[in-house]
Design a binder for these strands. Structure first.
Lengths: 216, 216
DNA sequence: GTCTATATACGGATAGAC
DNA sequence: GTCTATCCGTATATAGAC
C-alpha cells in the first residue's frame, strides 16, 4: 500500500481540476460571466481548453461550481461573535456588529460575487438560488438568533415573533446605499461609515431597548 | 414656409431613430447588455443593422442612451405626494409612502434597469454614474425634504443634520431583502409587504416622534 | 439615410493523436 | 487525461449600391 496520492497532490502540486477552478474563479469574478472566455480560463490555468471540458460539462457548469465554492468561503459558517455573547453594553456591541457586517458586505470579494450572480440570475436561476441560500439566508438566521439571545438576557426587548423582521430591517439598513454605490463603481459617499451605523443602532434601541434601562 | 416636418413625424410615424431606441430598450432590458445583439435590435426595429450604426456610434453608446432614457422615465421627477404635504397622521402617511416606494422599487421595469446596469457597471463606469445620478440621488433628496417638512410641521423630530442619514436608512430598510430576491429571481419571501413596512415605520417613529405627541 | 452583403474576429465546443 | 488543431455559429462593424 502506497501513500494515498491525494495527499501528495494537496501538498505539492495542485490538481489540474483545482487549477482550473482557481483560474475560473479569478476570470469570472474579474470580468463577469458573459465576458469571460474559456480561452482565458485555459490560459490562466496553463491548461488546454479541451482539458477544461474533460473536467466540466460546459461553461455554465463551471460557473456554478465557482459560485458555490466562493459563497461558502465568503459567507460560510461564521459563528456568533463573542462580543455579542458576553455583551454588557448593548449599544457598543451592536455598533461593533454593524461595523463587522459592513466590512464583509463591502469587501471586494463579496461585491464581485454579488455582481457576477446578479448579472446572470435571470438566465441561470439555480445560480441565484445557490447564492441566496448560501449568503443572505444564514446571515439573517444568525442575526435573528442574536436578537433573541440579547432579549433573553434582558438587554433588548424584541418580541420573538418580530425578531426575523427586525433582523431583516437591520441588515437592510447596513446594505443599502453604500453597497449599491460599491456595486455600481460610484465613488463612496463617505469614508467612515460609523456615524450612519450609529444612527441605525439608535433607531433599533429607541424602539427595542428594555423598559427598565435608560436607552440613551 | 412649410409646416415643420418634425411635428408630422411625432404624430404619425415615429422616426427610425426612435424605433431603434425603443427596440434597443426592450432587447437590452430583456436579455442584458452582453446577450443582446445588434441583429436582434435591428430585427425588432424593422431596420437594417447598418441603419443603427448610422444613428449610434456603437453598441455601447446605444446602451448608454437607453439607460439614460429609462432612468428618467422610471425614477424621473416625481413630486412629493400630497398625502405627505397634507398629513395629519404621520404613521399612516409614512406607511403609505413606504408602500408606494416599495411598489416602484419592485416594479419589473425598475428591476430590469437595475440588473442591466449592475451587470455592466464595472466595464461601463459612466453607465453606473448615470444611473445613480438619475435614480437614487433624487430619491434620497426627495425623502430628505419630506422628513424636514414633517419636522417643521411638528409631526416628526428629525434634526436637520441627521435627516439625510435617516432618509438613507429608511430607503435602505425598504430596498433590502425583497429587492435582492427579486433581482436574483428567488421566490418572494412574502406576498404582503405591509407588516414589514409597518415595523420599519415604527422604528423611525420610536426614535423621531416629537416629544409632545403620543407615538403609539 | 437606408439597404444587402460581407469582412473580420472571437467564442464555445469537439475530433483525434498520444 | 491532456494536448493541438479545428469546426461552426454568431457578433460587431463596415463597404458600397441606391
Amino acid at each position: 500500500m502506497s501513500r494515498p496520492k491525494k495527499i501528495i497532490d494537496d501538498m505539492e502540486t495542485p490538481s489540474k481540476h483545482d487549477c482550473i477552478l482557481t483560474a475560473a474563479q479569478e476570470i469570472f469574478l474579474e470580468t463577469g460571466y458573459g465576458a469571460a472566455s474559456m480561452d482565458a480560463v485555459a490560459a490562466r490555468a496553463n491548461v488546454s481548453k479541451a482539458t477544461i471540458y474533460a473536467h466540466f460539462d460546459n461553461k455554465r457548469a463551471l460557473f456554478e461550481q465557482v459560485i458555490q465554492g466562493r459563497c461558502r468561503r465568503v459567507f460560510g459558517n461564521r459563528d456568533i461573535p463573542s462580543y455579542i455573547g458576553d455583551a454588557q453594553d448593548v449599544r457598543s456591541a451592536l455598533c461593533r456588529l454593524a461595523n463587522d457586517m459592513m466590512r464583509i458586505i463591502l469587501s471586494p470579494e463579496a461585491l464581485a460575487i454579488n455582481r457576477a450572480v446578479l448579472a446572470e440570475a435571470p438566465r441561470l436561476p439555480e445560480v441565484g438560488e445557490t447564492f441566496y441560500a448560501a449568503g443572505p439566508v444564514p446571515a439573517l438566521a444568525r442575526l435573528t438568533r442574536m436578537l433573541n439571545d440579547l432579549t433573553r438576557r434582558g438587554l433588548l426587548a424584541v418580541p420573538e415573533k418580530e425578531a426575523p423582521l427586525v433582523a431583516e430591517l437591520f441588515l437592510n439598513m447596513l446594505k443599502g446605499d453604500a453597497h449599491l454605490r460599491a456595486l455600481l463603481g460610484v465613488a463612496p459617499r463617505r469614508d467612515d461609515h460609523r456615524p450612519l451605523l450609529a444612527v441605525a443602532v439608535d433607531l433599533v434601541l429607541a424602539r427595542y431597548a428594555p423598559a427598565n434601562e435608560a436607552s440613551r
